[in-house]
């Protein structure tokens, strides 16, 4: 698990060294400040899910700086991020760490580098619903996702599911489509084209 053993550090500094860091910075909305990292570890110390990450966020930044592209993008770190923003507000260098994690996920999905599909699938299922209805649909989402990835978990979940549907009264049918569905589709289509540029 220690990255010191698993990281395949290049013996020479690769040519694309700078470009990886600036690529990530450029793809992050707003100002990422990622180049300012001083490797203090505030992010890794603050992270509530650090124990389940193969690298701490700090180590990811070191990999990005060193230009170790595959290792950085293959990591489960961004996918374990819970978006709690503790690292972002505590970072002494004002690096927008959570947003950088989103960017890393974007690149990993685009380049199909991250192999465990659990997290990307969940996001994609979610998006699928939003792109079809304009709204999300919690029950459907959880159902589809757990059937695919956690089928063994379902028996344990049964009491909760029943509670959700009866006691909590959550709808089991998909939401009504928003009126501007066509408009939304056009916007998203254009956005996807712009993203690819």
């Amino acid at each position: 698990m220690t990255e010191l053993q698993t990281v395949d550090l290049p013996t020479t500094i690769p040519k694309h060294k700078k470009s990886l860091l600036s690529e990530v910075a450029a793809r992050t909305a707003g100002k990422s400040n990622i180049e300012m990292c001083i490797q203090c570890g505030t992010c890794g110390g603050s992270c509530p899910s650090a124990a389940d990450m193969d690298h701490t966020p700090r180590a990811i930044f070191a990999l990005l700086k060193a230009g170790v592209r595959d290792e950085a993008l293959r990591s489960n770190t961004p996918w374990m991020c819970v978006s709690c923003y503790y690292c972002t507000v505590r970072c002494p260098q004002d690096i927008h760490i959570t947003d950088v994690m989103y960017t890393l996920k974007n690149i990993a999905v685009e380049e199909k580098i991250y192999t465990d599909s659990t997290a990307p699938d969940f996001s994609k299922t979610f998006i699928n619903m939003v792109e079809n209805y304009g709204r999300s649909f919690e029950v459907g989402l959880a159902g589809i996702h757990n059937l695919k990835h956690f089928i063994g978990r379902l028996p344990g979940m049964t009491p909760m599911v029943i509670g959700m549907l009866t006691k909590k009264g959550m709808p089991i049918t998909p939401p009504k489509r928003i009126k501007g569905m066509a408009q939304l589709k056009k916007i998203l289509k254009r956005a996807k084209e712009l993203e690819a540029v």
Partner: peptide, 9 residues
């Protein structure tokens, strides 16, 4: 979720 997959959309 959407932010995880693609920023612009």
């Amino acid at each position: 979720e959407y932010l995880s997959i693609s920023a612009t959309p």
